[in-house]
Design a protein around this nucleic acid. Structure first.
Ligand SMILES: [Mn+2]
Ligand SMILES: [Mn+2]
Ligand SMILES: [Zn+2]
Ligand SMILES: [Zn+2]
Lengths: 148, 148
DNA sequence: GTTGTAATGAGACTGAGTCTTGTTCTATGG
DNA sequence: CCATAGAACAAGACTCAGTCTCATTACAAC
């Protein structure tokens, strides 16, 4: 999932923020750094335990800001807690395996052939329903390796 | 999306509830009735406005009970509000178009060919990650006909 | 330096969803 | 019938992830 270097990502995000008249401050950088390091969707409690110097309110605000400029994406898991990951523009398009037992979210990259099938299907839906699609997400629900 | 009659659905759900030592009471029936009538995922505020005689706490409890016996499924939309629909066992497997403007959720049925591609892809993921899949959901995010 | 604006920390607040409690329904059986 | 036990219910208190407010601090531009 590390198709870009962390340095590249920092540079790209700095540009995105500047386009939105936002600065790439220490707190924001620390969160992006964590998202790069972990390489899978991260919860607010992950952020709290890994970056204890960042207050909860600031972490949430940073996530909102980073989402507003397209650097971060919110991911709905199978439990009550949102996760956050780098936007697909900065990494690559992928889908999620959701474990109903431990709540873990695992990134998986689809093959081009499969994505082509998805795109075709979406175009059919769009045509039929007069719907203009922007993106899609495929979540696979089950049990991860650890949870059997 | 009406592959079964409402009567069939009531009968099936009554059986499911009985297997869980639960009764098919008026309130529960009213909610199932609404889900049948609307034929698309319904929010708690939809239920409140369509069934004003059912208190919010009861509606939530009924939904929990109906989910626990596999009659109802919770659907995550693109806003903060959960939706509820009849379980796929009672209707048919389908996917969702999520409008980011009005929050509407539209059911769409995939072709068998597409579902086969999805199944194959999921098996690959499962193999690679040691993941045991139970189900999947494909959400297409965009704008509905009304919202352009 | 001065000044305007963005960013921050602390904590109050919101509200969808859950839990508790006292009451009412209903199935069963004597 | 009536009695009784367990399920269902209404009302409202409560929880807590997430948002908002506001006073303070860090920047950037000039
Ligand atoms: Mn895809
Ligand atoms: Mn499918
Ligand atoms: Zn797991
Ligand atoms: Zn819409």
């Amino acid at each position: 999932m590390a198709v870009r270097s962390a340095n590249d990502i920092h540079e790209l995000i700095e540009r995105l923020l500047r386009q939105g008249d936002l600065r790439y401050t220490t707190g924001r950088r620390a969160i992006v750094d964590l998202l790069c390091r972990v390489g899978q969707p991260v919860s607010i409690s992950d952020i709290e335990s890994q970056l204890p110097s960042i207050p909860r309110s600031s972490a949430y605000r940073h996530l909102v800001d980073l989402q507003s400029v397209g650097a971060v994406r919110r991911v709905a898991a199978n439990d009550d807690f949102a996760r956050f990951e780098l936007a697909e523009d900065l990494t690559e398009h992928h889908h999620h395996l959701l474990c109903t037992s431990c709540g873990d979210v695992i990134d998986v990259a689809p093959t081009p052939a499969f994505e082509k099938a998805v795109t075709t299907m979406i175009e059919q839906f769009a045509e039929r329903e007069g719907f203009r699609p922007f993106s899609h997400s495929l979540d696979i629900v089950g049990h991860c390796r650890e949870c059997g």
